[in-house]
Design a protein around this nucleic acid. Structure first.
Length: 598
RNA sequence: GCCGAUCUAGCUUAAUUGGUAGAGCAAUGGUAUCGUAAACCAUAGGUUAUGGGUUCAAGUCCCGUGAUCGGCUCCA
């Protein structure tokens, strides 16, 4: 943590108290690291037995008891060798390994979490004592345990020691910690709100998508309503792209493995590629895990002139990735990923203009949802050059052109080393949702490597062959993931322009069914998404059902409405009904639809 | 993939120590034809995720498999 304010001191101290509590309950516990994280802290611990929720409650009780004892945090500075001896003597092997690492390699190989424990100096390290528990810690701490506000241990999870899959797994205990009980309650409340918005729950309730054991994990099936939203999103993003000269293409969903051997993806990502075997040929096929190699072949299908550039190929299409089962999650992480993908083949001097039009599309797109964007420039980690394809010169050129664009536009952005794709640097956009969470969705990636690998060419003014540059870009990112984000952003209550059903008619009694059906047809012809409830139920019941489906407009159709009187219109989320003529209502809905009103 | 937890009807769930699987909503059929947030009656729906094991007896205990959830790792 860059700044050590009181809250952070308190959270870090709280982590120590929890560790002390664990030490008392489980004397053999070996401790990993216990850093401050957002809203609290965690502590990694190696125990003989797995912890249960009941154990977590016990630890919480013990920690609360320690807090009440008002134990002081005492600091002691020790030369590193003595500290190593000390932790060896109490059998804290993880702390010893951290200290040894610090001694040998300095701080460079340490994560921020680890640094919170070991501190930044190689000569001396500091130890903090809380009652019977002594921990390696950079500090600073609060004076005594009494100063700890409200805390709650929330969950137990597995975590690899030092984040390495080859290391043993420790049990990670997460805790929340705030200055006051009220703040803790408020945060727990926010979590409950987020849970209410969970797209997996809402997706089922609103009948947007489903999963089937027979179809398989990570393979969502979209119902009519979910598909309507997908179509609206696709149409919207296409309407923004079209003015910039994008063309639409179509590619098959499988390809020979040779395609990815040529592209370089084969070696790098073979674990995540679904293989398709054929009995008719020895050739190896795979489900496409990305679209760029296919698109390069459309570019390469004929001779290209400098006059034709840029060539902008776009497509909303599904890729398939064999994700580990443990990381599948609702629509956020799936195995069939629909990308709103486009590849722009252009001359180097056209990159700025193309990135400019992509930025314009992204800006307008996210504005429609009221989601502010933060911008990140993802660069190569130049201490691990072996992880990337392409030469230094190519990388520097690519990184500079993106940076220069952002600067020229006067956009605020954060540079992030090590976040680039293996084939090139990129600009990532993180969108902020209604409850303040950030999602990485849109991206623009520069790629000098694929044109090289596929030997792509165009003919310049002098009749000479030139290599184009390639831009990869997505506006929504993945349609599935974006839908998940949108469902949670709107808590399932979509604005009119996105709502799968915009207007819902409820017939009062049997004699109004015919009239309601005529209205249905009329509205449908006007391009309004409309549904009807003519069930043998009370009006109250039908209103309740419409409300549960979060339909923007609900209208009870009886004698008065059919006779041409003003309609009483229920607006979702509003107590008061509005009164309006049918004509004005139609006008309002069409306006809200075309203007994409929030 | 790894660590931990969970799985009972379409959904939400009940079932004492191991002793007859029960309900609400939804669905279906009927009655009422109803004016703004749950009408009434009835019917059907279950190899308790799945395969083994222990036991006189398993939803309940044990083991394997699958899916889901919370994390870790990964995310072109």
């Amino acid at each position: 943590m860059p700044e050590e304010n009181n809250l952070e001191k308190m959270r870090h101290s709280c982590a120590h108290v929890v560790a002390a509590a664990i030490k008392e309950l489980y004397p053999n516990a070996k401790f990993g690291v216990g850093p401050v994280v957002e809203n609290g802290f965690f502590y990694d611990v190696d125990l003989d037995t797995p912890l249960s929720d009941a154990d977590l409650k016990n630890i919480q009780k013990k920690a609360e008891y320690l807090v009440k004892q008002n134990i002081a945090f005492e600091r002691e500075d020790l030369p590193i060798d003595e500290a190593i001896k000390f932790f060896e003597s109490i059998n804290q092997t993880y702390k010893v390994s951290l200290l040894r690492d610090l001694k040998e390699k300095g701080t460079t190989k340490m994560t921020e979490e680890e640094l919170q424990d070991v501190g930044g100096s190689i000569g001396t390290v500091s130890l903090y004592k809380t009652g019977n528990f002594t921990d390696l810690c950079r500090g600073p701490h609060i004076e005594s345990t009494k100063e700890i506000g409200a805390f709650k241990l929330t969950k137990i999870a597995g975590a690899y020691w030092r984040g390495d899959i080859n290391n043993p797994q420790l049990q990670r205990i997460y805790g929340l910690c705030f200055e006051t009980k009220e703040q803790l309650a408020e945060y727990l409340n926010m979590l409950a709100e987020a849970e209410k918005r969970d797209h997996r729950k809402l997706g089922q309730e609103l009948e947007l998508f489903t999963f089937s054991d027979l179809v398989g994990p990570g393979l969502p099936l979209f119902t009519e309503k979910g598909t309507t939203i997908r179509r609206v999103l696709e149409d919207f993003v296409w309407s923004l792209m079209k003015p910039f000269g994008y063309s639409r293409v179509w590619i098959p969903h499988i390809a020979k493995s040779d395609l990815y051997k040529t592209s370089g993806h084969w070696d790098k990502f073979s674990d995540d590629i679904f293989h398709v075997s054929s009995r008719k040929t020895d050739q190896e096929f795979v489900m496409k895990p990305m679209n760029c190699p296919h698109h390069t072949q459309i570019f390469a299908s004929r001779a290209r002139s400098y006059k034709d550039m840029p060539i902008r190929l776009s497509e909303v299409t599904t890729v398939y990735r064999d994700e580990n089962t443990g990381q599948l999650q609702g629509l956020s992480r799936v195995r069939s990923i629909t990308q709103d993908d486009a590849h722009v083949f252009c001359r180097l001097d056209q990159v700025k203009q193309e990135v400019g039009s992509i930025w314009s599309i992204i800006k307008d797109f996210y504005k429609a949802f009221g989601m502010p964007l933060s911008i990140y420039l993802s660069l190569r980690d130049d201490t691990h050059k072996e992880k990337y394809l392409g030469t230094d010169e190519v990388w520097n050129k690519a990184e500079d052109s993106l940076r220069n664009f952002l600067k020229a536009q006067n956009l605020e952005f954060v540079e992030e080393k090590g976040e680039a794709a293996f084939y090139g640097p990129k600009i990532d956009f993180r969108a902020k949702d209604a409850i303040g969470r950030y999602w990485q969705l849109a991206t623009v990636q520069l790629d000098f490597n694929l044109p090289e690998r596929f030997q792509l060419e165009y003919i310049d003014q002098n009749g000479e062959k030139q290599r184009p540059v390639m831009l990869h870009r997505a506006i929504l990112g993945s349609v599935e993931r974006f839908m998940g984000v949108l469902i949670e952003h709107y808590a399932g209550a979509f604005p009119v322009w996105l709502a799968p059903v915009q207007v819902h008619f409820i017939s009062v009694s049997e004699k109004h069914i015919d009239g309601s059906r005529e209205l249905l047809t009329e509205f449908d012809k006007l391009g309004i998404r409309v549904s009807i409830d003519e069930a043998n139920e009370t009006v109250g019941k039908k209103i309740r059902n419409a409300s549960k489906q979060k339909i923007p407009y609900t209208i009870v159709v009886g004698d008065k409405e059919l006779a041409g009187e003003d309609w009483q219109i229920r607006v979702f989320g509003q107590e008061e009904q509005i009164s309006m003529s049918k004509e004005n209502f139609v006008k309002r809905v069409k306006e809200e639809n075309s203007e994409r009103k929030a």
